[in-house]
Design a protein around this nucleic acid. Structure first.
Lengths: 182, 182
DNA sequence: TAACCCATGTAAAAGGTTACATGATTTC
DNA sequence: GAAATCATGTAACCTTTTACATGGGTTA
């Protein structure tokens, strides 16, 4: 449901499917991702609907690129979506499922090891986001309206990942206290 | 990939597909959900694989219920999954996609309205989770190992939702400052 | 009597991942 | 000479949602 709108949003400037994939793997990674095999058909469909138009353009290396640009109709569709209420996320966190049932194999170490590993994963995510922040959004005052908003989303990612680290620490502390009490 | 393991985990005590659906809609809602049309076939499949066994049992009201219980093989499969590393979540947050591109329609109000609405949604989630906490996990010392771990997941949910509220507030503050500067 | 809860399922469609196919250019 | 990057796509499969089908009992 959201992917076509994200593609429209990313196409403020003309780009190819391959370019968009790199954006998903880079600065958008913390809130969305998509495979090339999903991106290409989605772009074709948006073109059929008149929201994008494409042109072949020769490439320096490899096959000809297909460069997409947004049409007026595409811009209208995007802006309509942007004016809607925040679309709630379908939360699916398998690691919380694991944590939820880890009580069943509690051998005095399993939960602790799991939480420490989880903490590491979140710490790594914070590091990645901070690198993106430093690289693309360093000088606050100079940001365009578009970059300002992109930066806000990175700030969201950082805040949430740091909160997850805090949740790991709290869980570890509770778990240790509980272990000592028995 | 994770759903069958979650069902196995939820079936520490015997239950029907309908019961499991209610659990997804209740205390598990903050990290997973599933429709009945996905749950029933998944249970059938787990039974074919010998990880569950089911018995029909008459119901007070309505049709006969099919009660599933975990087999030794099912328990083994679950515990193997629990001993794996934390399974990373596939993050897909459409609302951050909206926020990311809202710079395009900045009319002096759009972003602010969006962030305030988003904040409300997170506040509602915190309220729901706090209600669950008060209802099921009130007396810390008395919790069984299973309930203790379930409580940890709720704490994760609260911490992350509160961080999201903080991120909204930070974004609103930045956005106002930026508006005044221009 | 209408709406809702109980209870189980199937079918179709949409969204997403993995695997396959092709082929040029650059880097190690 | 092998691996990685550039570049586009199709096919098969898996996961998830929405819609359909059935029917008894309870509540407003």
């Amino acid at each position: 449901m959201s992917l076509p709108f994200l593609l429209l949003g990313m196409l403020r400037l003309p780009a190819t499917g391959y370019d968009l994939k790199k954006a998903f793997d880079g600065s958008l990674r913390h809130f969305w991702s998509a495979e090339l095999s999903q991106i290409y058909p989605a772009l074709q469909r948006l073109e059929e609907e008149g929201k994008l138009r494409s042109r072949r353009s020769p490439s320096d290396a490899g096959p000809a690129r297909r460069v997409y640009r947004r049409t007026a109709r595409g811009t209208r569709a995007l802006h309509d979506w942007l004016r809607e209420e925040p679309v709630p996320a379908a939360v699916r966190l398998p690691y919380l499922g694991q944590l939820c049932f880890l009580g069943e194999i509690e051998d005095g170490a399993a939960t602790g090891a799991f939480l420490r590993k989880l903490r590491e994963q979140f710490a790594e995510r914070v590091a990645v986001l901070r690198r993106i922040e430093a690289e693309w959004f360093a000088d606050e005052e100079q940001l365009s309206g578009e970059d300002f908003h992109a930066h806000l989303t990175v700030r969201f990612g950082v805040t949430r990942a740091e909160a997850s680290i805090a949740a790991c620490d709290e869980a570890l502390a509770r778990w240790k206290r509980r272990k000592e009490r028995r």
